[in-house]
């Protein structure tokens, strides 16, 4: 496990990470390296701890009452739980897109600028440019460019999900986390999101929980198989999906369980 040599330094390193809700462990003893310019697909059956693992990476797991973390997570070598790390800054560096798109009850434009406007002030020109760039990168610009001031909730599900992606991109994050971002989408929207992600890979680390094995194999450079909170196998996606080392991985991807 965890022996695939990738050149360059890891963006995120997980060191013996466990997370408990109360005394129930949701993920256990995870060791993982996440590199820049790669898409890591974390897959596994329901309740295996995929969402939990994702939320640990930008400390959204802090919001869980009774939640408890063990081990360490390093971003560019720095422990994200160090007292001098600002959780606010961390969350702008490591953005997350959820399974169910939640547009804020604001306009399309305001949704995209929400994150940037929480921090330092920016000029109108800077913001407009940021909005266009983020929406283009999320493959949504052409569909909404004439209605930026309209309510975001009027968008279709697929558009809302791409808006949520654009909203995260506007943070100019280094890492993008996506938790089943296409689970509610039609195949065409799914394709648009995947295309956007492949382009974003050039400048970001991407961690995605795909909604099925096919998506994992389509876009993952690396893949990690999670089962009941345990990291069973991690490596180059192509190898995992064609020649898995662990029989449990094999069972899962060939559909013998889960």
């Amino acid at each position: 496990m965890n022996n695939t040599a990738t050149p360059g330094k890891a963006k995120l390193v997980l060191h013996d990470v466990s997370f408990y809700y109360g005394d129930q462990p949701a993920v256990r003893q995870i060791n993982l390296r996440i590199y820049a310019n790669e898409i890591l697909a974390i897959f596994g059956p329901a309740m295996s701890g995929k969402s939990t693992l994702l939320r640990i990476l930008n400390r959204l797991s802090d919001l869980a009452e009774e939640g408890r973390l063990e081990g360490e997570v390093l971003l560019d070598g720095k422990n994200i739980h160090d007292p001098d790390v600002s959780v606010i800054q961390l969350r702008t560096r490591v953005g997350i897109v959820f399974a169910v798109p939640v547009p804020l009850p604001l306009s399309i434009q305001e949704n995209v600028t929400y994150g940037p406007l929480l921090g330092r002030g920016r000029s109108k020109g800077e913001l407009d440019e940021l909005v266009e760039r983020s929406l283009r990168a999320a493959a949504l610009w052409d569909e909404v460019k004439d209605r930026l001031s309209e309510s975001a909730t009027a968008l279709s599900g697929g558009q809302q999900q791409r808006l949520c992606l654009a909203r995260v991109l506007a943070l100019e994050p280094e890492v993008i986390l996506l938790d089943e971002p296409c689970s509610g989408l039609d195949p065409i929207s799914t394709l648009k999101v995947e295309k956007a992600l492949l382009a974003l890979k050039e400048s970001h680390s991407i961690v995605i929980v795909p909604h099925n094995v096919q998506q994992a194999s389509r876009i993952g450079d690396k893949a990690a198989f999670l089962l009941m909170g345990e990291l069973v196998e991690y490596g180059v996606a192509e190898q995992i999906f064609t020649r898995p080392k662990d029989p449990r991985t094999d069972d899962y991807i060939t559909g013998r369980f889960g």
């Binding site: 930008n58 959204l60 919001l63 606010i88 800054q89 969350r91 702008t92 953005g95 997350i96 959820f98 169910v100 939640v102 804020l104 009850p105 604001l106 929400y114 994150g115 929480l118 921090g119 909203r167 995260v168 943070l171």
Partner: peptide, 24 residues
């Protein structure tokens, strides 16, 4: 979910209240 989104975009609890929760 609005509160979670606010936090995930780097908002403080108070920013979420002022910008989203209170207006709603």
């Amino acid at each position: 979910s609005f509160r979670v989104v606010n936090a995930s975009l780097g908002g403080t609890t108070w920013q979420g209240i002022r910008k989203v929760i209170l207006p709603q």
